[in-house]
Write a protein that binds this DNA or RNA. Structure first.
Lengths: 196, 196
DNA sequence: AACTATATGGAGGCAGCCTCCGTTTGTCAA
DNA sequence: TTGACAAACGGAGGCTGCCTCCATATAGTT
């Protein structure tokens, strides 16, 4: 995860050539756009064309459709993690539900991307392990604070809650208000209440 | 929906020929299996081959991959609807949550199928309208009973709740216990409580 | 048995995935 | 600068899967 900010090849011995790096970024950007517009099934050749590179170049950088999607996925996750850090100060319950609301809103704008991406979840791929770790580091403290403050039920795991929220975000409906409503219902179930 | 039980062609003027009907069923059965095994992306030619028919035949019965998936979808929905009717007698809250639990369990066994199917939700397709109507007829009474009995919060719509539950069912995890747990959290949010 | 509407199956056109390799280009040392 | 070479490029081409079309076969009818 952290490596993606510094350019992915830093981990390798030799640095990439300048043109290679440029193309890498270009493809990534174009792909993000293209997938958002035309859905995850957009032809890779179309993406290559739009990026002004040959299909061979695309494939050298991203050996498969999957690889390209994963690279995008990493960016998405990063952005979500970042947004958690701005909520440190607020009321514990507010902070948590605010984060989830942002998460939902964020996923909504990227429905095609994020939604489809998550279907690729090969749950044991190291990439996703890494992402889960990052998400955990970003969001779990928010949950813990809520639990410590007694406003969140204690018998839930962070990842469970994440899954729930993401599941809700992916609900196919044209009305975003409905999703928010469903989220509110679900979060109500998360609140701690004396009678258990 | 109702037509699908009586053989789908009843709605047309002339009845299908016997061989046609046989092939129709054969393809449907093989497709269900194949999709369950190999995921939704199984080649249609593979399915035709397994069913012992030509690809042309498959395409006459199901003019597109989508059409085939939809035909399967209808069956799934029917089964779920049927299961709602066995719960008429029980305690209102029990009946509702039991239905959802069954629904989840059912979807779990058909993850590949049901999960992928729902991604095809073209929300305005008449087929889905019809399915929604059926689901509504089957499940809404359960919800209403709960609301009338004061055990379910009154500010929720049936379809919202359905979406929520299905969203949870689709969560990608290898541990089914986790899904059940998440469902329980979400249903807790559905319960009515005095303080609102 | 003959007739015809209905159904069959697979060849073939098309599109997208991915590989391979001859050509180009950035980089670096002299 | 220039030369040399590893690195990167790009697109032709093979492959597979989607779907159409139509010559052929057959169930059902008279």
């Amino acid at each position: 995860m952290s490596t993606a900010q510094v350019a992915p090849e830093t981990r390798l011995a030799r640095p990439k050539r300048a043109d290679a790096r440029r193309n890498y970024e270009k493809i990534l950007n174009v792909a993000r756009e293209a997938f958002a517009e035309g859905g995850e099934s957009t032809a890779l050749e179309e993406i290559a064309r739009r990026a002004g590179v040959g299909i061979g170049t695309l494939y050298r950088h991203f050996p498969s459709r999957q690889a390209l999607l994963e690279a995008l996925y990493v960016n998405e996750v990063e952005e979500v993690c970042r947004s958690a850090q701005q909520l440190d100060g607020a009321d514990p319950w507010e902070a948590l539900s605010e984060w989830f609301e942002r998460l939902i809103g964020y996923l909504a704008t990227k429905r095609a991307l994020a939604g489809e991406l998550l279907n690729y979840l090969d749950l044991d791929a190291p990439l996703f392990q890494e992402c889960r770790t990052s998400l955990y580091a970003a969001g779990a403290p928010l949950l813990k604070r809520g639990q410590d403050a007694g406003v969140v039920r204690p018998d839930v795991e962070f990842l469970e809650v994440m899954h729930m929220v993401v599941g809700i975000a992916k609900i196919p409906t044209t009305d975003p208000g409905q999703i928010e409503h469903i989220l509110r219902i679900a979060l109500d179930g998360l609140r701690y209440r004396a009678e258990g």
